[in-house]
Design a protein around this nucleic acid. Structure first.
Lengths: 324, 324
DNA sequence: ATGAAAGCGCTAACAT
DNA sequence: ATGTTAGCGCTTTCAT
């Protein structure tokens, strides 16, 4: 591996100038710059990251901690994060906590020590722990808020309200909500936003659950829907998918007998029969934004950004009491 | 952040001794060791990885490149890799290629520059590119073989043969094989192993496909099964799941009318109705093994390890012409 | 605009 | 068993 010294010699300049040519090209005369670049090119020079880190204190690494990968939410998230990292010439250090707060804390500690910052996606640790973590290095939370820590939030709460508005506009007043996992922050947000929206239309949100956010739970839920409900909003895609299936098995037609919508769209709900009205959630953007935020830590004031979801009205929602 | 010099001073020894206490505790007298450890503890000393990397040439980083995360194969794989990395105090640098050979090569180049080695999972690049990559740094392949490059292979080929043997023992002679994605190395291996196994029983493997390895393709495939076949082996779980559903829709019962098996078990095939006979694939072990292998590069001779799958006979396979 | 030199924190000969 | 010393490759004052 050629070093900067090699490049400098090859270009007939000092190491300092060669270094400047890479870091601050504006401080170097055009012809010199050219010569250094050519030399670097010719030798296939790659700056040694460790050496750079030692002097600058920045490693170019970013810790990304997720609770799991076995969930379609995290794949686009990671992709978005990767893109943003690439754009700033950084790399992602991955940690999977498996929803274990202790493991999460250990990973954060270990990765954080070596990274320029940490992105914690839907962290399971308690507020105190997260605050302590954030004191030691730049941290950006995704899909979780803790005091005024910088965070990127997917606004599925407003989205759920939109879903309810959409149903209310169609004429629904009694709407069931299939609640997500117990203790889930996102679920609480969606539910209360939905309740508020329903109330605004003199309607009511009948909550069922909490339920595990799985296909099977959705299937089972089909047998226990609030009798009054003419429409259902499911906490997520899996639940909606299972419900759609369970409803079919029970002889109920969607949307003729019951309208159905989901508060995310992570499993191609547009391809079911009928296609299911859902919320398009900008997950990749959230990943990208979180990464670029944590990289700019210090530069910008900490803040929480809510990323809006987009309502995708599809065939599964229609007027109540819809004739065939 | 306290440095080694601080620890040394606190313990009343030289930096060298302090360093040895961490790296080679056996070279330090017990009481000294004790003092250094206490000092480090007291100060909350964390070795600076960059500095260490600069002297040793080892970063403690490992590149892990996968084609996607949106596939249940990669989640346990990454978990296994993470565990092995943790055990050796290394960290994982993640790269997702999205099945793009060029992107894969770029990621490998960029991550590899900074990592002690690279684990390429089911890489999509051509042999030449992979060979070139492996010349520049330690590389371990997972689920792909290229010449004599070190590799960890999940032996679903033998597993598929076992599946066919299992069916043949039950009396099946005409077995359909739902082939996976075109050009897939794994698919070719499974198919030809299955053909061989069928031939060994004077049976025949009727190949359908190539097919995209998706649920939908499985559903569709239900309408185009070889008429003679009394059993079907699907390339993977998704195809099997879709097929199961498609068969049900077509009024065919499993296993009464048709036996069904899958060459992996990534989607809880044991929980369907009926549960589907499948291959339990040790994916996490593969990830862990690949990581520990690449870390020992140089120490051990390069080799390919085949990890055996385990046949899980379940309710979906029975004798042909089985009376209700 | 460029160069000389110091130093980031650590490890590894080499002495003792 | 421990200390001394010389870098690893880079960035960054500080001079010029």
């Amino acid at each position: 591996m050629p070093t900067l010294a090699d490049v400098a010699r090859e270009a007939g300049v000092s190491k300092a100038t060669a270094s400047r040519a890479m870091m601050r090209p504006d401080m170097v005369a055009a012809p010199t710059l050219e010569r250094v670049r050519e030399a670097a090119q010719r030798l296939g020079f790659q700056p040694n990251r460790a050496a750079r880190a030692l002097t600058t204190g920045r490693t170019g690494l970013l810790g990304l901690i997720v609770p799991t990968l076995a969930n379609p939410f995290f794949s686009p998230l990671v992709l978005g994060a990767q893109q943003a990292a690439e754009d700033t010439d950084s790399h992602l250090l991955l940690g999977v906590s498996e929803y274990d707060p202790e493991r999460e804390a250990v990973l954060a500690e270990r990765l954080g020590e070596q990274a320029d910052g940490l992105v914690l996606v839907a962290p399971v640790g308690d507020d105190r722990t997260l605050r302590a973590l954030a004191r030691r290095r730049p941290v950006v939370l995704v899909d979780r808020r803790v005091g005024r820590l910088p965070a990127v939030v997917l606004d599925t709460a407003s989205g759920t309200a939109e879903l309810v508005h959409h149903l209310a506009r169609l004429g629904h007043r009694d709407i069931a909500y299939l609640s997500g996992p117990p203790g889930s922050w996102a679920d609480r947000e969606r539910r209360s936003a939905g309740e508020e929206a329903a109330a605004a239309h003199d309607g009511r949100l009948h909550v069922r659950g909490p339920l595990p956010p799985t296909y099977d739970a959705g299937v089972a839920a089909a047998r226990d829907l609030p009798p009054a409900a003419t429409a259902v909003v499911a906490y997520n895609s899996y639940l909606a998918l299972g419900l759609l299936h369970g409803l079919g098995a029970a002889g109920l037609r969607v949307p003729e007998d019951l309208s159905l919508a989901a508060a995310d769209d992570l499993t191609a709900l547009g391809a079911t029969d009928p296609p299911v009205t859902a919320l398009d959630v900008p997950v990749a953007e959230a990943g990208a934004l979180a990464v670029s935020r944590v990289l700019q830590a210090g530069t910008r004031p900490a803040a929480t950004t809510r990323l809006a979801t987009r309502l995708q009205p599809r065939g599964s929602t229609t007027r109540p009491g819809h004739p065939d």
